[in-house]
Design a protein around this nucleic acid. Sequence first.
DNA 1: ATGGCTTGCACCGCAAGA
Length: 269
Amino acid sequence: MGASIAYNAPMKIASWNVNSLKVRLPHLTQWLADAQPDVVALQETKLEDAKFPVDELAAAGYRAVFSGQKTYNGVALLARAGIDGGFEDVVTDIPQLQDPQRRILAATIGGVRVVDLYVVNGKAVGDEKYAYKLDWLAKMREFLAGELERHPNLVVLGDFNIAPDDRDVYDPATWGEDILCSPPERDALKRITELGLHDSFRLFEPAGEHFSWWDYRQAAFRRNMGLRIDLILIADALKSAAKAATIDRTPRTWERPSDHTPVTVDLDI
DNA sequence: ATGGCTTGCACCGCAAGA
């Protein structure tokens, strides 16, 4: 690990697809107060930048950077106001992708490089959006290879829209090789993790039946018919610093929830 | 069975999500 990293400074990092920050702001501020994360990556804010709730989050004790888009997409990073340096080297677009969709936001926070991703959904295997998803992931891999060279203390997190393996699917026999589980998608994710990134949740929990998303329909949450598609990948250099990883199902139980729930990792760096 | 909910936008139904 780099000499710039101070040991025994815990950093709790979270990712949450809020499915409209306008609707979910009360849930977010409640969860920030309850969970006390240091860094939060948000996806599907669905807000143009002029409407980002900067003041409300400042009142909750967090600074924010954001790359917003009306109606669709939109990502943001929050950092607890006490973290020195704020957001450094902010990136919203990568050279490999000319994309008006707001799905990427990187910043260095407290000596950790954080890359927040809202990966393309893909709609259905064979759809043109699916081809775009695979191309997007290949180009993202190129970008992340460079990030890893520049920043050994790398965390790549967000809504990956890929269930890494069958343990991450409530009914793999039925879901089969459909969208979010198809071999090419899983291979594209594997090509990214093979750069030297670890699915932090799997460092602590080998079992299935742990999900981060449940469909709004069919009482899917009550029946735990979900997928684990929200991931926090940590670089080799951070692996020994990881002390815990969780999926916090609580906000999914609240009234009018996001269909995703927050995932976290605790780093001692 | 491609829908079932939920969101935003723009109307009073639609696309999109996963």
